[in-house]
């Protein structure tokens, strides 16, 4: 065997060992998602690029607004599995859904890993009752997450909800139509979400524009493209290669969706069973 061949063999062995180590780290990360959160009051989104924007992830004890288009954009699919995961410390509390007309489809919640015993579905009859119920649920200290599909609500009531979330340590998630992006809101975090065409059947993509983030990084309103796969067997390619491909694709085929050089591309495999995350900044 030549010296070159020996070196090559050695290099490959070293690479294999490193890969195993990385995978082990990845698995540990997957099992203990809270490790990725720098602070205990944060819940990692599963997308490091978004975590960076949000200053560590979703904030416990704060109101979040997702401004969504009609129809299945995929935001719940991307974010709910991490949001509703039981906290690493302390008892799991309720996950409340408060809306006159909407409630999540329970089998999908189970696929997302939610123990349905934690699930509380409240159907108020009008917006006034809805605001009251959200306020009570956030304030009670009995809920980990309170989700509501909310249309118009006056500024004072919204401010009360933000205070209620702070008081009860609950994460409030308001799903609102995109039109409200132009209306000021006291919510601690506001994200404008838009779907992007996917690049593989099992994968989905989203573009998220932070409109406001209390305590987040000063990255302004840079749009983030998130990609995840539902298929746990969707073995991601080596990061560098994939990042290159993603950037190439993003710029060539969907150039309009991104904001020029400020775009951060994140690839994530965030299926319900496996949400190991690999991401790169391009």
């Amino acid at each position: 065997m030549s010296a070159a061949a020996k070196t090559e063999l050695h290099r490959r062995g070293e690479l294999g060992r490193l890969r195993t180590q990385l995978e082990a780290l990845d698995r540990a990360h997957h099992r203990r998602p809270e490790l990725s959160a720098a602070r205990p009051d944060r819940i990692a989104t599963g997308f490091p690029a978004l975590d960076l924007q949000l200053g560590g992830g979703w904030q416990r004890g704060a109101l979040h607004e997702l401004l969504l288009p009609d129809g299945g954009c995929g935001a719940l699919e991307a974010f709910l599995p991490r949001l509703i995961a039981p906290p690493a410390v302390g008892a799991a509390r309720l996950v409340a859904w408060i809306d006159p007309n909407h409630w999540p489809y329970p089998p999908a919640l189970r696929q997302a890993g939610l123990d349905l015993a934690r699930c509380l579905v409240v159907r108020p009859r009008d917006t006034r009752e809805q605001a009251w119920a959200i306020d009570l649920a956030l304030r009670s200290g009995a809920c980990d997450v309170v989700v509501a599909w909310l249309h118009h609500l006056d500024d004072r009531s919204l401010r009360r909800l933000q205070l209620a979330a702070e008081e009860g340590g609950a994460l409030g998630l308001l799903l609102r139509p995109q039109g409200f992006a132009r209306v000021a809101s006291p919510a601690a975090v506001r994200l404008l979400v838009a779907p992007l065409p996917s690049r593989a059947p099992a994968r989905r993509r989203l573009q998220v524009t932070p409109l406001r983030c209390r305590g987040g990084a000063v990255l302004g309103s840079d749009a983030v493209v998130l990609e995840w796969s539902r298929d746990p067997l969707d073995e991601p390619a080596p990061a560098a290669l994939r990042a290159g491909a993603a950037v190439a694709n993003g710029n060539d085929t969907h150039g309009n969706d991104t904001h020029g050089n400020d775009t951060h591309v994140a690839n994530a495999c965030a299926g319900s069973r496996d949400s190991g995350v690999r991401a790169v900044r391009a």
Binding site: R93, P106, L116, L120, V121, R123, R125, W132, A142, C143
Partner: peptide, 27 residues
Amino acid sequence: GAERTAAALIDRLAMRLGREQVRGVEA
């Protein structure tokens, strides 16, 4: 403590909205 606050929340919601408007789900 968590059970108690959860039960208290459920009962307060049910008091105003009615018990059939405050539900749990099962598979």
